[in-house]
Simulated assay, not measured.
Amino acid sequence: MEGLLDARLRAEVTRIAHYDWCVTEFVRVTDGVLPPRSYQRVAPELLNGARTEGGVPVRVQLLGSDPQQLAANADQLARLEPAGIDLNFGCPAPTVNRHRGGAVLLDEPELLHDIVSAVGRAVAGRVPFTAKMRLGVRDTSRAIEAAQALAEGGADMIVVHARTKLDGYKPPAHWPWIARIAEAVRVPVVANGEIWSADDYLRCRSESGLRDVMLGRGAVADPLLATRIRARLAGEDEGDPAGDWPRIAPALTGYWRRVLAHVEARHAAGRVKQWLNLLRRTYPQAETLYQALRPVRDNTTVERMLMAAVAEACAQAPG
């Protein structure tokens, strides 16, 4: 999730709830082997045993189209001992696709096979090796062929975002297509796309036939989403977003401090507003805070308002 779920936000989200593992933003591979610092910049968790502060393993994602360059960089990356390496064949961004990266490669199953085979040989079982794809570029006509190319090339697992590149992020996600892909390959498949609630998870599970899902924007909009899903499956109370706000609000100030330490001051307010913009889908208190902060540009004022909101949330917490 380029430009959104970076190491700073990963740290906060994975302190709130447990995830089996998470994936970084992509590292673009073009010419030459990147130095270790390039990977550590995107995944500072590599300096902490490839885990977030909340203890969640971190896999690093590569994006590119040259099999040999990707293989050489995967070899370099594996030496840094990430929790896994993921290949990005899902990004729909025009700037990425114009440079033959991301979802546009789904029209070239032979190239997908060559990339995955080369990377698989370079990694040689040292770390888990996964790939993420969409259903195609303009349509789903080559979805099965693309997935089989990834599986036969040697990917250990395939994550399927159930939309085409042309679909972007427009609802709906076509979960039944994931079931077709899962039937056509011999490696585990994980469902992804348009899962914002426990109800969405259950519908996705019913339509895809898969228990395992990857949460994207849904986990940013509700950091407790994985917890709610597990509670629903266990027949337990999954909680109420309004009542859960005291668990979420302190992470805003934690995130704010991380942003101030690593992002240019003029961009800091925008980053916290970006998170709030998604949080307000789930939490009514986030909507109120977002509207109050929206016109504010001064960082001192932003911090004061965040601190006040957190103090109010904590004061209203039970017990």
Results as ranks from 00 to 15, higher is better:
1 M>G: 12
3 G>F: 12
5 L>T: 11
8 R>L: 08
12 E>N: 09
14 T>Q: 06
14 T>R: 07
19 Y>N: 07
21 W>L: 15
23 V>I: 15
26 F>C: 05
26 F>L: 09
31 D>I: 12
34 L>W: 01
37 R>W: 13
38 S>Q: 07
39 Y>W: 03
46 L>C: 02
52 T>P: 09
53 E>V: 12
54 G>A: 06
60 V>A: 10
60 V>S: 09
61 Q>T: 03
64 G>H: 02
68 Q>C: 10
71 A>W: 01
71 A>H: 06
73 N>K: 04
81 E>T: 14
81 E>L: 13
82 P>R: 03
84 G>W: 00
84 G>F: 00
85 I>K: 07
87 L>H: 04
91 C>Y: 03
95 T>V: 13
98 R>N: 10
102 G>E: 01
102 G>I: 04
103 A>Q: 00
105 L>P: 02
107 D>N: 12
112 L>S: 08
113 H>C: 10
118 A>N: 01
118 A>M: 01
120 G>Y: 01
123 V>N: 00
130 T>R: 00
137 V>S: 11
143 A>P: 11
147 A>Y: 06
149 A>F: 10
149 A>E: 02
150 L>W: 07
150 L>Q: 02
151 A>S: 10
158 I>H: 02
159 V>W: 06
164 T>V: 05
166 L>G: 00
166 L>I: 08
170 K>C: 09
180 R>A: 13
185 V>L: 12
188 P>A: 09
188 P>T: 02
189 V>L: 12
190 V>I: 15
190 V>Y: 12
196 W>D: 11
198 A>I: 03
208 S>M: 03
210 L>T: 07
214 M>F: 11
218 G>L: 10
222 D>I: 09
225 L>A: 08
226 A>P: 03
229 I>T: 09
232 R>M: 08
232 R>Y: 02
244 D>P: 08
245 W>F: 06
247 R>C: 13
254 G>C: 11
265 A>P: 02
268 A>N: 00
270 G>A: 06
283 Y>G: 08
283 Y>S: 11
286 A>E: 04
291 Q>D: 12
292 A>E: 13
296 V>T: 09
298 D>W: 02
299 N>V: 14
300 T>Q: 14
302 V>S: 07
303 E>S: 10
307 M>I: 15
307 M>C: 15
309 A>V: 09
313 A>K: 00
316 Q>M: 14
